[in-house]
Amino acid sequence: MLSRRVFLLSAFAVPGLSLLQRRAIGSEPAASKVLVLTEGICGDTRAFAGCLPASQFEADPGPMLLELDKSFKEGGFDLVFGLSRDSNFMLVEQYAQASRYQLHYHGIHKYGATGLSHSLQGNSEVIKYLSKNLPTVNKDWTDAVSQIPALSEYQDRQLLKAEISSSHSRPEQSPGLLVSWLFKRSIS
């Protein structure tokens, strides 16, 4: 059941949030219902699942997508966040957009000969945070990615793009490319 995995997010729960950032948020906003999705295909996605209470796609994503579609139509989540292979992102996107959820952040994480490249697009707080933390985090880069829902609570609509790289080495069984993404329910 997806609903059992939904967690409530308070922006004040973000680790490492500076005083300035807390002031920027102002009074604590209402908690958002967040659904996190991933798949247990490699060390990176398993590490990500260790950071947040995530539901996991199976080899056949069909059953979860049906459940997700139903929840989307009911407006069950404020944010849907994930780290997955691109095929599962595309499928989630199809259902999300049909229920007026908009893509607010998208990152492509690709292993190459010299490490990991990150092509990121999102609001400025997210991009600034990832740009600072992804290259420096020693072990699991997915830990930095897992902070994105909290940072997306900012009402900052300025979209930024960034191309950064880190020296992480490719874990065994990695597909070589993962995408991280965040959908927000449109209020209109």
């Binding site: 080899a59 056949d60 994503p61 069909g62 997508l65 292979r85 691109d86 095929s87 599962n88 595309m90 499928l91 492509i108 690709k110 597909p175 070589g176 490319l177 995408v179």
Partner: peptide, 16 residues
């Protein structure tokens, strides 16, 4: 029995 497994083929080239 319907499934969605076949979309996995698109990962052959990453963002396929």
């Amino acid at each position: 029995v319907p499934s969605m497994t076949e979309f996995g083929i698109m990962n052959w080239v990453g963002s396929g």
